[in-house]
Design a protein around this nucleic acid. Sequence first.
DNA 1: ATGAAACATGAATCAAGATTCAACTTTGGG
DNA 2: CCCAAAGTTGAATCTTGATTCATGTTTCAT
Lengths: 203, 203
Amino acid sequence: MNQDSTLGKTPKTARGQKTREKLLRAAELEFGESGFHSVGINDITRRAGVALGTFYVYFESKEEIFRALVGYMSQRVRSWIAERLVDVPDRLAAEQRGLELFLEFVREHKGLYRIISEAEFVAHDAFVAHYTAFAGAYRENLEAAGRRGEIGAGNYEVWSWAIMGMAVFLGLRFAEWDDEAHPKEISTAVMDLIASGMGAKGS
Amino acid sequence: MNQDSTLGKTPKTARGQKTREKLLRAAELEFGESGFHSVGINDITRRAGVALGTFYVYFESKEEIFRALVGYMSQRVRSWIAERLVDVPDRLAAEQRGLELFLEFVREHKGLYRIISEAEFVAHDAFVAHYTAFAGAYRENLEAAGRRGEIGAGNYEVWSWAIMGMAVFLGLRFAEWDDEAHPKEISTAVMDLIASGMGAKGS
DNA sequence: ATGAAACATGAATCAAGATTCAACTTTGGG
DNA sequence: CCCAAAGTTGAATCTTGATTCATGTTTCAT
């Protein structure tokens, strides 16, 4: 229908660009703090420092800006982690470091984390897209590591979803609810579980 | 304040009891299918086959009935699984069977599953209570198994959250989104991961 | 059998908040 | 410098849907 999928709402001017960004930033904070249904458009515009009507110059609806945010930050988490995961020796190390990074990210961006979670109900398609993409990438990493012999054979599709789930719940418990524990402790504990299993060990 | 915490809304009659249950059952279906915010009180009453006003005879508000539902089903999942987990030989077997049961439960009760998830945003305290209770029980199981020497030492608090997260995400992917895969395949794949780790094995 | 307590009803009320709009201001290319 | 396009404004409009309430019906303990 439309080249930009944003129905001609794309700003043409520097000023417009700036305003749109102010709205996005404000929405990120508001949604992150209070959740989709308790924030009103006027909360967003007030925080952005623009008038109510301005909102509709750039967005079709409240749902659209939320959806935009989900896409935006789905991008962010993944690239933020990927960037810092370059010089890691092998898959197991990547696993551990990746979890630490994820926990750190959540602590610094609780709002974004909540936005993705809430997307399950507010923008289900965006939610599906996010985790599908994430799991897909993850699975490829596992397969590559498998070919390199760094990890054993297994059902990598299942593994990738299992590991994502772990990360999300640990983020909930040890980043969103409780800031105290050191990420390294968590990641180490998880590595005990994932690397060699819970079967009785030497200790 | 009140003996029953339900502000005198508790039914005194057999008829009342029945009506309240009809409402609860209807709400379970509606919330499960459409999510908290898109169901109206009249959707619930229509489905229950009672008049709109009747709702407020038994519940203070839409949120209250949702909260009641969360508690109700938090109970249900746990006991449903626990009941069927009696004659299991050891912790590892319990782990595998428990996951299968969870997946089966989700398939049969997708609505209830969604209700608990959505509680994170609609009834945060009930959500916290549910997972706190679940994790607590889980942790005790792990500790007991640890004392019996069935599993190795580890940070059981972290493990229990990790395993819950796995279960929830696998439920999302392989029960809510996709009914096809056999639960046993999933649980087996996970056992590979959890029992002996992803480190390279014989195969 | 009977009347007070319980329960049921659904039209009317009310609040909240999303969206529209017509008037006004700024920008930037020519 | 000039004006059409782009952007801004916020009061007014419109929907939606939760909650109330006055009235009628049923239950059940006495």
